[in-house]
Amino acid sequence: MKRRSFLKALGMGAAAMMSPGSAHAARNRPPLRYLRPPGALEEADFLARCINCGQCGEACPNRCIKYFSIENGLASIDTPYITPREKACILCMKCGEVCPTGAIKPIPRETEAIVEGVKMGHAEVDKGLCLSYQGKTCGVCYRACPLPDVAIRVGRLEQPHVLDKCVGCGLCERSCIQMPHAIRIVPRHG
């Protein structure tokens, strides 16, 4: 790097740091990808309802519910989230039962009610990574899905096709044997 261009970059960097827009720049970092527990309200309503009591995590028999510190901003401090690749939701619906504020709606543990009420996100397949689309029969995501043939079905060579009724529990992402994973949940809150 030429000295002039280096100095210029340094000056611009310093200017960016000093300017009031720098806070905005910090906010432009890629957002965290996380899921809210099953039955959670829309993000704004959820934040207004959740009192951060931690009972959803204490009820979770799978220990998949974790809590934000300040990494996702002050508004979501101590709110519950799920990182499906680490541990996914098993749709036991106990968190909605204990939630005192209705931030997580109580939903009975039945297929119709879950398909109707749970909208954590939607699974998407990266065909460039998926083994089945590369000619190697896999089908692990289909076998991991708690709603097979409702949320996901497989075609030739076990190639997964995610259907509209996918609730986004993340068990497929959790179980994908590819690294990085070829199927991932796109959270509903975006």
Binding site: A48, G54, E58, Y67, L74, A75, I77
Partner: peptide, 22 residues
């Protein structure tokens, strides 16, 4: 103003309950 129950973050009994669990 923030639309989130921020008061829980400055209230020690709520903090203690959560933090022991964490």
């Amino acid at each position: 103003a923030t639309g989130s129950v921020l008061i829980a973050a400055i209230y020690p009994p709520a903090i203690i309950g959560r933090e022991i669990y964490y």
